[in-house]
């Protein structure tokens, strides 16, 4: 009888302490959540302001003026736009699989090779 009472008393105490801790933890986390929400809002507002600034800095006339001042760019010319069909024909691919030899460029004019430039005395003058 007495042992049972002590047992129940212990259980009740433990539960009480646990409940207190859980409640405390929940409160702490709620505060944390509210803090995070505040932070999110602040960040969103900052993003919002930055977006406006980004758009303001991206005004086409400003970009154009900057490009004119700092870069050597010109409007795109139609001659600079090509299509895949305009590329020269692909090199004929010999059947490399049959003997495992890398495809050769036999029959094609040699590729230009870089040559060290030697300035002669005349040229220097």
């Amino acid at each position: 009888m007495r042992r049972a009472t002590i047992l129940w008393f212990l259980i009740a105490t433990c539960l009480g302490v646990a409940l207190f801790l859980v409640k405390h933890e929940v409160q702490r986390r709620e505060e944390q959540l509210a803090g995070l929400h505040r932070q999110i809002l602040a960040s969103q507002e900052a993003i919002h302001v930055l977006e406006a600034e980004w758009s303001y800095l991206n005004r086409p006339d400003r970009i154009e003026a900057l490009v004119r001042r700092h870069l050597n760019l010109v409007p795109m010319d139609t001659r600079r736009i090509g299509s895949v069909e305009m590329l020269p024909m692909r090199l004929p691919m010999p059947d490399a699989a049959e003997d495992g030899v890398a495809p050769t460029l036999a029959g094609l004019p040699p590729l230009p090779v870089g040559r060290p430039l030697v300035l002669t005395r005349e040229a220097r003058r």
Binding site: R38, L41, E45, H48, V49, A52, S55
Partner: peptide
């Protein structure tokens, strides 16, 4: 949390801001 601005933005077809509320 969602930022509520007084008025929705207006953007161009590429998403650049044309009008926004600060």
């Amino acid at each position: 949390a969602q930022l509520t601005v007084g008025r929705a933005d207006i953007v161009d077809r590429d998403g650049l801001l044309l009008a926004t509320s600060l």
